[in-house]
Amino acid sequence: MGWDGIKLRHTQSPAGFALLGALGLLFAVAPVQAAGDRALGEYLASECTSCHQLSGRSSGGIPAIVGWPEEQFVAVLNSYARKERDSQTMQAIAARLSRDDVTALATYFASLTSKP
């Protein structure tokens, strides 16, 4: 087993490495702008939009996260995962995101434009 996309990255089976290596080669030669998987990012983002509005609007208590630079998005989520930033909710969320999940989310939200 272990052929499940998300689990594969956690378990890092030899087959997984080989496949990811092949994909990496494929992406390296293709003009890929986005670093993260768009479909994965879109699905994962649906969890975020219960609190962070997709339009980029914000009612103050929860920040807008649309249109952030990808590096910033990744850095913030990682700091929640390390519990360096305060927010019980975000710490619990970040703790269960893989590196690829975070990258996919960063790419997805960076691709959106705020519509306040």
């Binding site: 939009t49 219960s50 609190c51 509005q53 103050g60 929860i62």
Partner: peptide, 20 residues
């Protein structure tokens, strides 16, 4: 106070997520 600010912002977000 911050938790209540989250509560208010969550309500606006989930309603936007459901109805807009």
């Amino acid at each position: 106070r911050q938790t209540q600010a989250e509560n208010i912002a969550w309500y606006d977000a989930i309603c936007a997520d459901m109805f807009t």
